[in-house]
Design a protein around this nucleic acid. Sequence first.
RNA 1: GCUACAAGCCAGGCUAUCGCUCCCCGCAUUGUGCGGGGGGAGGAAAGUCCGGACAGCAUAGAGCAAUGCACCGGUGAAGAGCCGGGUUUCGCGUAAUGCGGAAACAGAUAGUGCCACAGAAAAUAACUGCCUUCUCCCUCUCCGUCAGGAGAGGGUCGGGGUGAGGCUGAAAAUGUGAGGUAAGAGCUCACAGCUUUUGAUGGUAACAUCAUUCGCGGGUAAACCUUGCAUGCUGAAAUGCCACGUAUAGUACCGUUUUGAGGGCGGCUCGCCCAAGGUACAGGGUAGGCAGAUUGAUCCCGCAGGGUAACUUGGGGGACAGAUAAAUGAUAGCAUUAACCCGCCUGGGCCAAGGCUUCGGCGGGUGAAACAGAAUCCGGCUUAUCGGCUUGUAGCUUUU
RNA 2: UGACCCAUGGUGUAAUGGUAACACUACUGAUUUUGGUUCAGUCAUUUAUGGUUCGAAUCCAUAUGGGUCAA
Length: 129
Amino acid sequence: MAKQLTLGKNERLKSRKGIEQLFKEGKKMIVAPYRVLYILEKSAKGSSLLFAAAVSAKSFKNAVDRNRIKRLTREAWRLQKNDLKKKTESANIQLNVFLIYTGKALPEYKEVFTKVGAVLNQLEKRVAE
RNA sequence: GCUACAAGCCAGGCUAUCGCUCCCCGCAUUGUGCGGGGGGAGGAAAGUCCGGACAGCAUAGAGCAAUGCACCGGUGAAGAGCCGGGUUUCGCGUAAUGCGGAAACAGAUAGUGCCACAGAAAAUAACUGCCUUCUCCCUCUCCGUCAGGAGAGGGUCGGGGUGAGGCUGAAAAUGUGAGGUAAGAGCUCACAGCUUUUGAUGGUAACAUCAUUCGCGGGUAAACCUUGCAUGCUGAAAUGCCACGUAUAGUACCGUUUUGAGGGCGGCUCGCCCAAGGUACAGGGUAGGCAGAUUGAUCCCGCAGGGUAACUUGGGGGACAGAUAAAUGAUAGCAUUAACCCGCCUGGGCCAAGGCUUCGGCGGGUGAAACAGAAUCCGGCUUAUCGGCUUGUAGCUUUU
RNA sequence: UGACCCAUGGUGUAAUGGUAACACUACUGAUUUUGGUUCAGUCAUUUAUGGUUCGAAUCCAUAUGGGUCAA
């Protein structure tokens, strides 16, 4: 059980090409403080669920605050993402997700946890379709 | 004990659970996974204001331009940094010596520009004023042959002499006194101030003191500028290598032995050298990995020596982030500093009483929260910063 | 990471080192039965702090905020 709650290098979206494709062709949806970009592809290679997070430097001037939001977002994703991952694996679909925090105030961990859970629920519905 | 200032240090701790990244070992294993062990943000990592290391390109030479710096000595790899000294200046203070701070601190007789308002005038004269044995006019007196002459006084314009009297301003031609003159003026003299030359003494030097000598020509160079010195340009998105991949591919223009496009040359010109391809537009491909790259002018010391100090020599000691859409985190609990809240006790004050207020003590409860995140590395500077500890200085208070 | 630029009323712009100007907006008053038009007036610590200068929006230094460029 403990093994499954990981978020290593191979589960994060790291390639510049993948991100540019996501911004060009990906679909958008907005969940509370997050703007979500995602793209679905058949025939997954490697991990079937890739994830990245970002915060605008305009709304948070200090690097400390941006780092904290990204860390909280990653933590919430890490703890809740497994159900979605099982579905994508079983459907043999690759799903790339990019979360952008657009709020103006520093969030609490609990808030982030529930919001990321909502994002995951939405994505599960899209995957089911 | 409290308060203020200065210097130095620290920048929350422990436990559990779940995670991230790098290195080593073992096992499985080509990609990687699992297990064990170890390392993992700062005093400013920030701003990017200076200086370097390092790398690439350039490096026959000359001139011009551009940029920066500017008292002296030291320090250091270097600097617009730091340390010490000098000078000027500001504040405080004394009978006096002083104490503390600040300074882009070369040149204003090399030249040009600017100096609002006010003022006669802002640098060179004019205006006004003063003087005039110049000219003209008027009045008075005297002489006189009734043409005029002499003397005195006064006046306007013009000519000549004079230069700081004009008081406005931030700033007015060094100040005071005397002489001198038709009137005046450093024109002359005395004293004082500033400044130049030369010399002596002290000091490594800046400079100081004394003597001598030439002068007194406003301010502004953080206006242009002049003098001296320095500077090749570009910055890790530099740069080198490997892999993948496309169109041996289109259009226009310039040029190809001498008449030479362009390049070296990335500030410009001359000059030198190389030179057969070059420029623009449109389009296509890649955007992965490794090195650079983490041990270096590194840091520390109840050490020893040198130096006023910055700093340095020797010795010893252990320590050392390396991510790359970018790690160092999340949650829970415990104890606790400051702070806050509640209750009790004692003393003081107000008060008829009830009660209110305050210093201190005891008990209980809440309770980590400053500025801020490495991105090639290093030395400085600047800015942000809750709070704590140590040392020193000053003031107040208490006890002995 | 590196290089560079800007900041003036509420907004957009001016201003040789010498009284901070103009347009629009807002507000107040006058004119009008009322509104509009028109007229008059009000609204600036020139981002901040220091320095140079007799004098700084302007020149210099440092900081703050905003923006641009470089694969």
